[in-house]
Design a protein around this nucleic acid. Structure first.
Length: 111
DNA sequence: TTGCTGACCGACG
DNA sequence: CCGTCGGCCAGCA
């Protein structure tokens, strides 16, 4: 364990996201006992991009289900493409039935 | 060392 | 309804 680093915790949660499932920055932040720390979650994912680990950051979106971080994937449309590849309907950079694909770490991982 | 910014969220006016 | 602000932590100039 020893997740002294904030991003290490984020990676741990994001990597546990099931296939075809999505979550929000706030949910992860809340899982880290810091609801308002959602900003750092996105920032941690940004670092994950540089990390050698496979972080499915495309499964992480904002509360609105919008692919706010799609621009950070390097290629426009890649994030949407990946989500659709997992069976998630995405349109206009927004996930359809977001709550239906929503995966809450606090509810699935039990704190 | 200080200060700003950041893939957000919720509250306030 | 929409614009603005505060908050959390860590990296960078």
């Amino acid at each position: 364990m020893a997740e002294d680093l904030f991003f290490q915790k984020v990676y741990n949660v994001v990597k546990q996201i099931p296939h075809g499932r999505v979550t929000s920055y706030g949910a992860i932040a809340e899982f880290l006992a810091a609801r308002s720390a959602a900003r750092m979650v996105g920032w941690a994912l940004n670092a994950s991009h540089c990390s050698a680990q496979n972080i499915p950051a495309h499964r992480v979106v904002n509360r609105n289900g919008q692919l706010t971080g799609k621009h950070h994937f390097g290629v426009t449309g890649l994030m949407q493409q990946l989500l659709q590849s997992e069976g998630i309907s995405v349109e206009n950079d927004t996930i359809k039935d977001f709550h239906k694909h929503f995966w809450d770490p606090n509810r699935e991982l039990l704190r």
